[in-house]
């Protein structure tokens, strides 16, 4: 009897193995891709601790410990790129969140469904196109004979000459913030709008019975009820605090050297050090700095998301 049971159990196990084998097999191509594209480069982070010499090979190069990091943090670049990355992200979070919530609330006031759809599609248009195209659109406005110089500054304001936008760093923090808002508000607005239309009509009816004005309804019904969404989105952006949209900082200023103090962020620094200067030491040190600090930041922000709304947490 006991023998029979053991055999049956064994057979069951074999059937199970056969059944799940196919499922595991299906996962192989995707997993192999992630291992190559994502996991192997993680181990490659150790390159930052070596003095890379291609004659000796990536593995055979001499170990130099923290020398690359010393060079990086002694340069003024390290401060500039860290400052720019963090400050821009902060500005993006505050401004984009505020504007997107406002626009979503306005959309919610529109009764006609067709109209809402048209507004949404048009607001999303900038989100649909690549940063290279955005760079062209910005160029049409900021070129020496661009729309701003020819129509506004020399035309409307009657100044003698326009501004050469691509060589004056002073204006660029505002330009970057504006372009980023222009490109991304449609996207954020769709998310907040989806959250607002989930609010039950009863809340508004109750508020109206109590004599709440439009502004009061927004303040005491809409905003409190979409707060979890706002907080989640903000914390997710805080998790990306150490990363930036490479295209926004590389394509839009047209890689103009005169603007680096205002437009250089960690991502563009790593790219230029690697591709333009072939300085593997500096670029990989900056890369490790970004990966490690970025990892800590994302863990912390997710911890915060979990405390507020477990459903929205990444893990």
């Amino acid at each position: 009897m006991a023998d029979g049971k053991a055999v049956a159990l064994k057979r069951k196990k074999r059937v199970k193995l056969k059944r799940y084998f196919m499922l595991y097999l299906m996962m192989v191509p995707g997993m192999v891709y992630l291992i190559i594209n994502n996991y192997i480069p993680m181990f490659g982070l150790y390159l930052a601790f070596k003095n890379i010499d291609f004659r000796k090979g990536l593995w055979g190069s001499d170990w130099i410990g923290l020398k690359n990091f010393e060079f990086l943090f002694k340069s003024t670049d390290a401060f500039i790129i860290t400052r720019n990355t963090i400050l821009y992200n902060l500005a993006f979070i505050v401004i984009n969140t505020f504007l997107a919530v406002m626009v979503a609330i306005l959309l919610n006031e529109i009764v006609k469904v067709r109209r809402v759809k048209i507004y949404q599609s048009l607001l999303l248009l900038p989100y649909l196109i690549s940063m290279v195209v955005v760079a062209y659109l910005v160029l049409a406005f900021l070129d020496n004979k661009g729309f701003i110089n020819s129509a506004v500054i020399t035309g409307l304001l009657k100044r003698k000459s326009g501004i050469s936008w691509y060589s004056e760093a002073g204006y660029w923090s505002l330009i970057i913030i504006f372009v980023n808002a222009w490109k991304n508000i449609g996207y954020l607005c769709v998310i907040y709008y989806a959250s607002i239309i989930g609010i039950s009509v009863e809340y508004y009816e109750a508020a109206k019975l109590d004599g709440a004005s439009m502004i009061q309804q927004i303040r005491f019904v809409t905003i409190p009820l979409i707060r979890p969404t706002i907080i989640t989105m903000v914390l997710l952006s805080i998790g990306r605090m150490f990363y930036s949209d490479f295209g926004l900082f590389y394509q839009v200023p047209m890689d103009s050297g005169a603007l680096y103090t205002a437009t250089n962020v960690i991502d563009t620094y790593v790219y230029r050090a690697l591709i333009k200067l072939s300085d593997i030491g500096m670029s990989s040190a900056a890369g490790v700095y970004q990966s490690v600090v970025g990892f800590v930041v994302v863990l912390c922000s997710n911890l915060a998301v979990r405390r507020i709304d477990k459903e929205s947490a990444l893990f």
Binding site: M31, N38, G44, L45, I275, G287, V298, F315
Partner: peptide, 25 residues
Amino acid sequence: VLAFIVFFTMLFNGGLVPTYLMYVR
């Protein structure tokens, strides 16, 4: 475990330099 392996790539990555060197070399 497998889901975590997929998910972890969203939190941490090697960045441009190792990726570039691996793909190119």
